[in-house]
């Protein structure tokens, strides 16, 4: 790595880390899966890098009072294999297991991923479908932001300068829910061209609850509320899938146009809904 020169800090407490960010020249290093490549390319040249790995407690995945709290420094692999996640919010584990490759999953963290807000990250689809909350800490204290309000635009979140993601909070999925994360991986980067996360709860022959999160299609992850409403209102999976992404902006690149991404979001929403329904009790 032939980056620009930078100073490297390993604070032992969050307070120390926050103090180090005060001058505005520092970048938080979590797993480094986005920051380090950017620094290698010299697209990012922070004056200082504040590595959170020595701060105790930031990795913990715990469950209390019907909610799961995932420390920001938990790696994708830890989330993928966590019994708590598997038992209480398996959709998140399924999304984690689809990220990049094993090396990336061993290094990358959920806090780093949500803070970076890559429009093609995997987690945001699951997080908006899970109605997760992002817990932020700054010198002024803590606050939480709903996932659907957190991802504002490409690489743009509701975070203010001087804030650090400390945890992700997810309400337990009910045991009777079905879930599915479906992804079309870009053949080079492994990022989702589109990723669709679905939760459904059956009620008799109908659907009592549906949540659909979509990533990769547009500049930020979004909930397909129109499709959710159709499902909950008794329309079939096909009819619901057909409106996913309506009115949303699309990304396009060499590999996939915006039109194709929207189409893929619909096809894979249909498939994810069907898969989730087969898992629902």
């Amino acid at each position: 790595m032939i980056s620009n020169a930078f100073s490297y800090h390993t604070p032992e407490t969050l307070e120390e880390a926050l103090a180090m960010l005060e001058d505005g020249g520092g970048k938080i290093l979590a797993g480094g899966m986005s920051l380090i490549p950017l620094m290698k390319l010299r697209l990012a040249s922070p004056e200082s890098v504040v590595d959170l790995r020595r701060i105790p407690g930031l990795k913990a995945i715990t469950e209390e009072g019907g909610a799961v709290r995932i420390g920001a420094m938990a790696t994708h692999h830890e989330i993928e294999i966590s019994p708590v996640i598997r038992g209480k919010c398996p959709l998140l584990g399924e999304a984690a297991s689809a990220i990049g490759d094993i090396q990336v999953r061993n290094m990358g963290t959920i806090g780093g991923s949500v803070a970076h807000a890559d429009p093609a990250a995997d987690y945001p689809a699951a997080l908006v479908a899970l109605e997760a909350r992002i817990r932020l800490r700054s010198a002024n204290g803590e606050r939480t932001v709903e996932a659907s309000e957190f991802f504002v635009d490409a690489f743009t979140t509701a975070m203010e300068a001087g804030e650090i993601v400390v945890a992700i909070e997810v309400k337990e999925e009910e045991a009777s829910e079905g879930f599915k994360y479906e992804k079309v991986a870009h053949p080079a980067s492994g990022f989702p061209v589109v990723g669709v996360a679905v939760r459904v709860k059956k009620s008799g022959a109908g659907i009592a609850m549906a949540r659909i999160g979509v990533t990769g299609m547009g500049p930020h992850a979004f909930r397909a509320r129109n499709a959710e409403a159709l499902l909950e209102g008794g329309a079939g999976a096909a009819a619901a899938a057909a409106v996913v992404g309506e009115g949303e902006e699309t990304n396009s690149d060499l590999y996939a146009s915006g039109e194709y991404r929207r189409h893929l979001a619909r096809v894979h929403a249909g498939r994810a809904i069907a898969a989730a329904l087969t898992r629902a009790l």
Binding site: L41, R42, L43, P119, A120, D153, A154, T156, H186, S189, F191, P219, E249, N251, S252, D253, L254, Y255
Partner: peptide, 20 residues
């Protein structure tokens, strides 16, 4: 330059965002 050769998947998204 660098942004063109490595940022291909994001160039259009970013341009649109800046204009917005």
């Amino acid at each position: 330059g660098t942004i063109a050769s490595v940022g291909q998947r994001l160039v259009e998204t970013t341009a649109k965002m800046l204009i917005k």
